[in-house]
Computed example of a mutant assay.
Amino acid sequence: MKIARLGDIGLHYRVDGDPDGAPVVFANSLGTDLRLWDQILPLLPQGLKFIRYDKRGHGLSTCPPAPYSMGALVTDAERLLDQLGVRDCVFVGLSIGGMIAQGLATKRLDLVRAIVLSNTGAKIGTKDMWQDRIGAVRAGGIEALADPILERWFSTGFRETDEFLAWRHMLLRQPVEGYIGCCQAIAGTDFYTPTAALTLPALGIAGSVDGSTPPDLVRETIGLIKGSDFRLIQGAGHLPCVEKPEEYAAILTEFLTAQGHV
């Protein structure tokens, strides 16, 4: 287990694949840790360097008191990549990770040569919606909202599998303060203008039954970037890399290859 000390924050990260390969960086969703990507990494091309990390308040990273800002989450990613000597990566972000991808690409094009915006938006929900969720979590813990959250994350069929229980446990063991802090970061973010100014290769991925970031939101967001592509994974919810890892990996491999990153 590796920790990058970034000022007052320690970020847990992991490097897999070829240490000398072209870097692909993964940022996970709200309420999950870097294990989100476990199933797709073995399905991606050999010779790449895969970097995953737990954002602040998640996994084994430091969990400072809320609130968090999106700027702080973007700066955490920036400092991690600078410390690891990463340049010209393909940055794959899912949900809040996709927001971090948009912010990082806007701020540091020397770090990012292409982005994958998976199950995300330039703006997700409303401030009132996020405040209601924060209030409910403060009152009753994450368990009070676990069932409706998981219904948005996964299709009906997947929720009947044994594997689903592990994801439920991951959500319930998420630090409340980290969850609330990241909810506040999402609530305060509107990237429509900066994302529309991006000029790098970009791919959007959506799940057809995603209840958190519906396909139309992902399509609208990726459509802000000229020359971008959009792919829909049928029958998948908010975490298609978990429900449909083979299809997700195939789409990602196609994009990496098209960018000459493989």
Rank of each mutant, 00 (worst) to 15 (best):
A196V: 02
I233V: 15
I124N: 03
E220Q: 15
D76H: 01
T221R: 00
T32M: 14
K55G: 12
L252W: 05
M70E: 07
D18I: 07
P175L: 13
S69K: 00
I40M: 15
L60I: 03
G59L: 09
A105L: 02
E143S: 14
E247S: 12
D110H: 05
G125H: 03
R79F: 10
M1R: 14
C183T: 07
L172E: 15
F255Y: 09
G31V: 11
Q234Y: 12
G188E: 15
T126N: 13
A122H: 08
P42H: 13
S228N: 01
L198V: 02
D82H: 09
G135M: 04
T221A: 01
T106S: 01
H58N: 07
V242A: 13
Q184N: 04
T156N: 08
E151I: 08
P240F: 06
A258C: 10
P45F: 02
P19D: 12
M129C: 06
R138H: 11
D128F: 14
Q259N: 05
D18Y: 00
D147R: 11
L224T: 07
L84G: 09
L145C: 10
S29G: 12
D76W: 02
R219K: 14
Q39W: 12
E243K: 09
Q83S: 11
G103Y: 00
S69V: 05
G157N: 13
T221Y: 00
F230M: 13
E163P: 05
E177Q: 15
G98T: 05
A250S: 09
P65G: 07
Q83I: 01
Q39I: 00
Q131F: 09
G31P: 08
G21S: 04
T189F: 00
A249G: 12
G227V: 14
Y192R: 14
P148D: 14
G204F: 12
L200Y: 04
L150H: 06
A27D: 11
V137P: 04
T195K: 00
S61K: 12
I100R: 03
E243M: 10
A202N: 00
G7C: 13
L171F: 09
